[in-house]
Write a protein that binds this DNA or RNA. Structure first.
Length: 425
RNA sequence: GGUGGGGUUCCCGAGUGGCCAAAGGGAUCAGACUGUAAAUCUGACGCGUAAGCUUCGGUGGUUCGAAUCCACCUCCCACCA
């Protein structure tokens, strides 16, 4: 019960992972003992995306330091929708959908924290459990009474929605803060949970919970928010041209996930190492130093990509991503064996099977999704942007068939510098 | 409820009867240069090999011809109540 790493907050500080804390000095004292903390994840889709990675990893950091993490899945709050810093009212999803998502998130969240029999073993909780049978009158009298509307409308997170003409905020979303506060006080009561972490946008909701807990149970609980992950070029983190980067390998393959991190800008990569890996400070400083001295390609992106992919998809997932990446970007495609190619397919390289006897290059590009119309396909070919099995192909009418493929069965199509597709006959 | 202003191609935004698939910017994509970068330069950017076809909130109408004019509908915004 005493094996607590008291350097935890200093480590978080070094990583730039602390945005705000309630009563910092008290919290430092508080964390000298093993504590229980939580972070909420609302089901807004059937998978979390990398935006949730920072809080997930911080839960893990807390557990490694000897504390007990609770991952809260918002079966209840997900039905309401968090208005914090959202420009517009969100549409509600139906209950069955949300319940399906809740199950997936539970599973996903579980991969990041330990459930073994140790004293600080993690738990997954669902706020639906303690909210679904609270009746309205009880809620209004026992919980609502503790909240001042005057204070609530002062919160930065909803201010713009209230002040801005045109867009408003429904009572439903306005109430979200109360529900989340209720969660915190319930977790305090049921699990002795005394710390909530969350993104910086959660500050208002978290402090609501610390106050409610004090009023209901006279307990002191703490809040700690994490910084919003930003990119140096100002674009939104976690999105690429092709969409959101999900944690679920079915939605974003391990290969695509790995590639996402490999493509991190130099200006962001050292910051991201701190946010997303468990490497020690000395190691990270050394990496940065080495990259600075060596001209040419920095190695930080590769380290980041390997570390994060391993964290999310495990060693196997990482190896799969590496196999594909190495084959496509550094290997000679002609040297791949049939088994190698089959492995790439198994590893989740973008692929499709063709039903046709033969395809023109243009048709192949369109059916593989590498070009969205025939016209675009022709343009790519004309631009010298397409290669087949590692060789530039500039003839629009080139015919592809099983016979022209590698091992009588595969074509590796490449459009531009980094988009690949495996065509199977 | 009243008055006024709007809804244009992924986004912003010009366009007020033919010269409009529709200016300009952004985003995106490709090429060159590179490090599977950044910056820069070049090109593409509704669909179609092309002829041509389909777009400018919706539906009808006027006209040889409409994103542009008319009617109705719908959604949004501002001000007033």
């Amino acid at each position: 019960m005493s094996a607590v790493d008291t350097n935890l907050l200093a480590d978080l500080e070094m990583r730039g992972l602390i945005n705000q804390m309630t009563s910092p000095e008290d919290l430092v004292q508080h964390l000298r003992e093993p504590r229980t903390l939580y972070c909420g994840f609302d089901p807004t889709a059937d998978s979390l995306h990398i935006g949730s990675l920072v809080p997930l990893l911080v839960l893990k950091r807390f557990q490694q330091a000897g504390h007990k993490p609770l991952a809260l899945v918002g079966g209840a709050t997900g039905m309401i929708g968090d208005p914090s810093f959202k420009a517009q009212e969100r549409k509600l999803n139906d209950e069955a959908t949300i319940n399906g998502w809740v199950e997936k998130l539970k599973h996903q969240v579980s991969a990041f924290i330990e459930f073994s029999d140790q004293a600080n073993s993690a738990a997954v909780v669902n706020n639906y459990d303690w909210t679904h049978n609270v009746d309205v009158l009880t809620f209004l009298r026992d919980i609502g009474k503790h909240f001042s509307v005057n204070q609530m409308i002062q919160k930065e997170s909803v201010k713009q929605r209230i002040e801005r003409e045109g867009d408003g905020i429904s009572f439903t979303e306005f109430t979200y803060m109360i529900l989340q506060s209720y969660d915190f006080s319930e977790l305090y009561n049921q699990y002795a949970c005394t710390l909530q972490i969350g993104g910086s946008d959660q500050w208002g909701n978290i402090t609501g919970g610390t106050e409610l807990t004090r009023r209901r149970y006279q307990g002191q609980v703490f809040g700690l928010t994490l910084p919003l992950v930003t990119k140096a070029d100002g674009t939104k983190f976690g999105k690429t041209e092709s969409g959101t980067i999900w944690l679920d390998a079915k939605k974003t393959s391990q290969y695509a996930f790995y590639q996402f991190w490999i493509n991190t800008a130099d200006a962001d990569v050292y910051k991201f190492l701190r946010y997303f890996t468990f490497l020690g400070e000395a190691d990270m400083v050394a990496i940065e130093e080495r990259d600075k001295e060596a001209q040419g390609r920095p190695e930080a992106q590769g380290i980041l990509a390997r570390e994060v992919t391993r964290l999310v998809h495990g060693e196997e997932g990482l190896q799969a991503a590496l196999r594909i990446s190495e084959a496509l970007f550094s290997g000679n495609l002609q040297h791949l064996t049939a088994a190698d190619l089959e492995q790439l397919y198994q590893d989740g390289m973008p692929a499709s099977a063709t039903g046709a006897e033969q395809l023109t290059l243009v048709e192949a590009l369109v059916t593989s999704g590498l070009a969205k119309s025939n016209k675009m396909a022709r343009e790519f070919v004309g631009n010298n942007a397409v290669s087949v099995n590692g060789e530039k192909c500039t003839q629009v009418d080139t015919l592809l068939s099983a016979a022209t493929g590698l091992h009588g069965r595969y074509h590796i199509l490449k459009r531009g510098k980094k988009l690949f597709h495996l065509l199977r006959w």
